[in-house]
């Protein structure tokens, strides 16, 4: 099918976790001499395959440590998989955390452009998005002030607005759906309701309310494998049954 925008095939990823303080040259040489590996392999993703169609709003759920965030980071190309492949058709805008690269000493405007550059947008592209971003954040009067003088609510509003206004084909979000005060949270909720079915989104979340409200499809991950894939209502029920 041509409307598949993300195709994940048989993804494997493991981490080398240091068993003791293997931090530093001395320990590394010591371990090598003694024949100790100094780390143990932790399998995090264990053969994950799925396809994402255009304009699907996918919720990825699972318990802590099940591999959701690793999957998201692998999709965002922050981690490299040992095995398997990821094919992405279009530009992917990842928000693993809000406000990455924000610098408190820079002004709001400078931070927007820096953040945009980090996401791979040129200044020209950012010029086109700039007004929308600050209007959504409702921070127009504060753009020339340093970020350190913003309240924390204002900072996340700015970061969030960049996230949702960045013109990418596929949006990756890790547990960031609503920020700020009640009014702004409502605005975020309305926004997500409005893009449901119109924009491709992959969201990692623990909130089943959000899954049933916004997602057109959900994936439950357990021990690095896909346990269930399909209707958000069903997945939400299955998720709740995991520990009851």
């Amino acid at each position: 099918m041509s409307d598949i925008v993300v195709s994940v095939k048989n993804l494997h990823k493991s981490f080398k976790l240091p068993t003791e303080r293997a931090w530093g040259l001395k320990q590394a040489i010591f371990n090598r001499l003694k024949g100790i590996k100094g780390y143990k392999e932790q399998k995090v993703l264990n053969g994950i395959s799925f396809d994402v169609r255009k304009n699907e709003f996918i919720g990825i759920v699972g318990r802590n440590g099940s591999g959701k965030s690793t999957l998201l980071k692998t999709l965002a190309k922050i981690y490299f998989p040992e095995k398997g492949s990821i094919n992405i058709n279009g530009t992917l805008v990842p928000f693993i955390e809000l406000g990455v690269g924000f610098n408190p000493e820079l002004s709001g405007r400078e931070n927007i452009y820096l953040n945009g550059a980090l996401l791979g947008f040129s200044n020209k592209e950012m010029d086109a998005m700039y007004d929308e971003i600050i209007d959504f954040a409702e921070l127009r009067p504060f753009m020339d002030q340093k970020l350190k003088n913003y309240s924390s609510g204002m900072q996340v509003r700015l970061a969030f607005s960049i996230a949702i206004r960045a013109k990418g084909d596929i949006l990756l979000l890790d547990e960031v759906l609503a920020v700020g005060d009640a009014a702004f949270q409502q605005k975020c909720a309305d926004y997500f309701a409005s893009i449901k079915g119109k924009q491709t989104v992959i969201l990692v979340t623990h909130d089943m309310g959000n899954v049933t409200k916004y997602c057109t499809r959900a994936i439950l991950i357990e021990n690095g494998k896909i346990a269930l894939d399909g209707d958000p209502e069903k997945i939400a029920k299955a998720y709740k049954k995991l520990w009851s």
Binding site: N103, E105, L114, A117, G120, F121
Partner: peptide, 21 residues
């Protein structure tokens, strides 16, 4: 690649601006 040049410029600008802040 253009995106990389933009990022390089932005990061260098920030570094330089903040060095003696």
């Amino acid at each position: 690649y253009k995106g990389n040049r933009v990022l390089l410029k932005e990061l260098t600008k920030t570094d330089f601006k903040l060095r003696y802040q």
